[in-house]
Amino acid sequence: MRLAFMGTPDFAVPSLFALHAAGHEIVVVYSQPPRPAGRGQAICLSPVHRAAAELGLPVRVPARLRINVEEHAFFHALQLDAAVVAAYGLILPTAMLDAPRLGCLNIHASLLPRWRGAAPIQAAILAGDNHSGVTIMRMDAELDTGAMLRSDRIALTPTTTAATLHDDLAIMGARLIVTTLDQPTTPAQAQPEQGVTYAPRLTREDGRIDWSQDAAALDRQIRALTPWPGTFTTLDGQVIKIGSAAPSPARHLAPPGTILDDALTVACGKGALRITRLQRPGRSMMDTNLFLRGQSVPAGTVLGS
Results as ranks from 00 to 15, higher is better:
H108Y: 08
H24A: 06
A299R: 14
Q295A: 13
G195N: 12
R274D: 00
L90K: 15
V85K: 09
R280W: 01
T157P: 15
T203G: 11
V85F: 11
L156P: 11
D206S: 12
L65I: 14
N68D: 13
R35D: 02
P158N: 01
V196R: 02
R175I: 11
R280D: 00
P58F: 04
R153W: 04
R35A: 12
L45R: 11
I154V: 12
G23F: 01
G103F: 07
A246L: 10
I67T: 12
G128H: 04
L45T: 02
A224Q: 09
R274Y: 01
R2S: 12
R175T: 14
N130T: 15
L156K: 12
R35L: 08
H20P: 01
L111V: 10
A215C: 14
I67C: 15
P62D: 11
A63W: 06
W228Y: 09
D168Y: 07
A83E: 00
S244L: 08
T265E: 15
Q194C: 09
M172W: 09
L273N: 02
R153I: 02
L303P: 13
A51I: 07
R223N: 06
G300Q: 02
L126T: 10
P184F: 11
I242S: 09
I275P: 12
R64Y: 13
A272L: 13
P256I: 10
D81S: 15
A250R: 07
P200K: 07
D140T: 03
G117E: 05
I121S: 04
A246M: 12
A263E: 13
A155Y: 07
T164L: 01
T161V: 07
P200E: 09
I67Y: 14
R220G: 04
A4S: 14
G243M: 01
M137A: 11
T265V: 13
I154A: 03
L273G: 02
L57R: 08
L112F: 06
R39T: 00
L292T: 06
V239P: 09
V29A: 02
G146E: 09
R138P: 10
T185Q: 08
Q122I: 08
G282Q: 07
S132L: 11
Q41S: 09
I209R: 05
G56I: 03
N289L: 05
L55F: 06
A141I: 09
G38M: 06
G230F: 04
R204G: 15
D206T: 08
H76G: 10
S15C: 08
L225G: 04
D140G: 10
A82E: 07
